[in-house]
């Protein structure tokens, strides 16, 4: 495996291998000295065209714990705003000698373009491209859920696990990557949200859907609910009438948390809009995996870097 652009690039076996490596990395992260020499002498560039401190820091820590040299490149411009083009930026990084480029970009397909353009020789890791994919987020979500469900998770998938992804499916790269990866791992995936934000093409790939969170809770016997962040720009674009109405129908509040029962996990890719798609009662409940998701992000990204750069067992 050279690049990680889309979770579609991963077979079930390759995905499980990454999750298993993540497990080993998480053990490293529990040590006093959280560092491995694996990627010594390698250069990882975090190329961020979009602000995302959380994802950038997670990748940065992951690379540093593997002893790679890390360069953070915040590229504000794009060919739209008459700044430096993606091609020029990529060729600059190539000249510097990057072994891996972690790219976050506002344009869907930017990571695909970088990986297939011939502009860079190193590995390309998609850290979120527009409304397309966010594969490391899906891997860390799968990892977190797998660890929560199985005491000894090694080698296992998510067979038969029922997960609802709730919210703005249409514009969510997290939802797209999770839909494909969770299904690949054997989970049943249900999509829930207002009809304006549920594209029929994605519904047809899911195991079911609902326009009502209450109906979904009553129908699908969920093992986990994954709440998506409501982006500010959707609120003014007429996808739903108001924040209040959204919270009332699709928000995960204390009442719905009770209906879900004590065996259903609550997930959120962050950052949360508390009071909108998720209430404090749900976010901070004992079933919430939100903080584990953040912690596991580092382990999973270490595993991805390891698999792509160290000539690991999947070469």
């Amino acid at each position: 495996m050279k690049h990680l652009v889309s979770v579609s690039d991963l077979s079930r076996e390759a995905a499980i291998a990454i999750l298993d490596t993540s497990l080993e990395m998480s053990e490293v992260n529990d040590r006093d000295i959280k560092k491995l020499p694996t990627l010594r002498g390698k250069t990882v560039v975090n190329l961020f065209f979009e602000d995302s401190t959380r994802t950038r820091i997670s990748f940065e820590v992951a690379a540093k714990r593997l002893s790679a040299d890390v360069i953070n490149f915040a590229a504000k411009g794009s060919s739209v705003s008459k700044g430096e083009s993606l091609k020029d930026t990529a060729q600059t990084l190539e000249a510097i000698g990057a072994d891996a480029v972690v790219i976050r970009h506002h344009a869907s397909g930017a990571a695909h373009m970088l990986a297939n353009s011939g502009w860079v020789k190193g590995s390309v890791i998609n850290a979120g491209d527009g409304t397309h994919e966010h594969p490391t987020q899906a891997l860390l979500d799968a990892f977190t859920l797998r660890s929560a469900i199985h005491a000894d998770a090694r080698g296992k998938g998510l067979d038969g696990v029922a997960v609802a992804i709730v919210g703005d499916i249409a514009h969510s790269r997290v939802a797209r990557s999770n839909l494909v990866l969770l299904k690949k791992l054997g989970a049943k995936v249900y999509l829930v949200g207002p009809p304006t934000l549920l594209p029929s093409a994605l519904i047809s790939q899911a195991d079911g859907y609902s326009y009502s969170l209450d109906d979904a809770i009553a129908t699908f016997k969920l093992d986990a609910v994954m709440m998506l962040r409501v982006q500010l720009e959707r609120m003014t674009a007429g996808f739903f009438p108001s924040e209040r109405e959204y919270a009332r129908i699709w928000g995960l509040n204390a009442d719905r948390l009770a209906l879900l029962g004590s065996n259903t996990f609550v997930m959120h890719p962050g950052p949360m809009n508390r009071g909108l798609e998720i209430d404090a009662a749900a976010a901070d409940s004992k079933n919430s995996l939100v903080l584990k998701q953040v912690a596991n992000g580092v382990s999973v990204r270490m595993a991805v870097l390891y698999h792509l750069l160290s000539g690991g067992e999947n070469e």
Binding site: S78, S79, V80, S85, L86, K87, H105, H106, A107, S108, G109, A110, M113, G130
Partner: peptide, 10 residues
């Protein structure tokens, strides 16, 4: 070329 050798949305 530069109008096509870029991200799709650009």
């Amino acid at each position: 070329v530069e109008s096509k050798e870029c991200e799709w949305s650009a």
